[in-house]
Write a protein that binds this DNA or RNA. Structure first.
Length: 278
DNA sequence: CTTACGGCCTGTACGC
DNA sequence: TGCGTACAGGCCGTAA
């Protein structure tokens, strides 16, 4: 899925279709995704007008004029498709789980093959204390994220930096791909204990995280298999990966050329260059 | 408190 | 072609 760049691209697609639109009808086509839908989810969203969707880490928030907000997580395979209701795009197929029709004639369908995604309803005043959001760390694209906040998040942590950067409570939005890519750009080994990274290298890491996320968003995200934006466009940042999925290939650092290695950390693949990452 | 691990689901790629 | 196995971008609950 969808890590921060893909979620941001999806959010922008929803922003065009949803901002100011009223939900004419909402249908859930099963009782749950990863979790059960909130009680009477469809009825409570129907008739509401959406405001501009926001993003926090990998969550998309759609505020409603009724005082509620939808919190959406795409999980691993969740995606939206915006089409014309008249053409009946979406709404069909066994993985089309939620169908929103708006008063502009758009049909916005949520698909999720693996159903690791979720949708919640929360009162807008309670967003900060909602279980899905309250423990999230800093969003790396938000003001306030920097070497200071990252250093504080890593202080005293023994776990490898790879695991720490995947922990949404410390920094919200990175997943396996972009952690691998950011660590390579910052020339930091994924195995290095979090607390043993100098302030100068944390600064380098902050810049690496920002640059890889910005470039990925500009490329429309990374499409490995399932991901597509809400307009169906595929991302192309996967062509810019320097280490992810490149086990056995040469490191792309100009003066390096060592072989990219894959190891398993906390059950996930880490790709890195043992020569330039320390 | 922090960290590690199994489990949730389905689809796909690969080896035989 | 068919079958079994491993693995996939995430996160939650539990246990140590």
């Amino acid at each position: 899925m969808p890590e921060l760049p893909e979620v941001e691209v999806v959010r922008r697609g929803l922003e065009r279709a949803l901002t100011g639109a009223r939900f004419r009808s909402v249908r859930t086509r099963r009782a749950d995704l990863r979790f059960p839908f909130p009680d009477r989810f469809a009825e409570r969203v129907t008739g509401a007008r959406a405001e501009a969707p926001e993003r926090r880490g990998k969550h998309i928030i759609v505020p409603l004029d009724t005082g509620w907000a939808i919190i959406i997580h795409l999980g691993m395979t969740g995606r939206f498709l915006v089409g014309k209701a008249s053409a009946d795009e979406g709404g069909e197929g066994k993985h089309a789980h939620v169908v929103f029709d708006t008063d502009r004639g758009d049909r916005i369908t949520f698909f999720d093959a693996r159903r690791f995604g979720s949708m919640d309803l929360v009162e807008r005043g309670d967003l900060q204390i909602h279980a899905r959001l309250k423990d999230l760390g800093a969003d790396p694209l938000a003001a306030g994220f920097g070497a200071g906040s990252l250093a504080a998040a890593l202080a005293g942590r023994k776990r490898p930096i790879k695991a720490a950067l995947l922990d949404q409570r410390l920094i919200a939005g990175l997943g396996n791909i972009y952690v691998c890519e950011a660590l390579h750009r910052a020339r930091i080994s994924p195995l290095r204990p979090s607390a043993r990274i100098s302030r100068a290298r944390i600064q380098r890491l902050v810049e690496a995280i920002r640059s890889v996320l910005d470039e990925a968003i500009a490329a429309g995200g990374s499409t490995l298999k399932d991901y597509a934006a809400a307009d169906g466009e595929l991302g192309y940042f996967q062509h810019s990966f320097r280490v992810y999925g490149r086990e056995g290939q040469r490191c792309l650092e100009p003066s390096c050329g060592a072989t990219v290695r894959r190891i398993v950390q906390s059950g996930r693949s880490s790709f890195y260059c043992p020569s330039c990452q320390h």
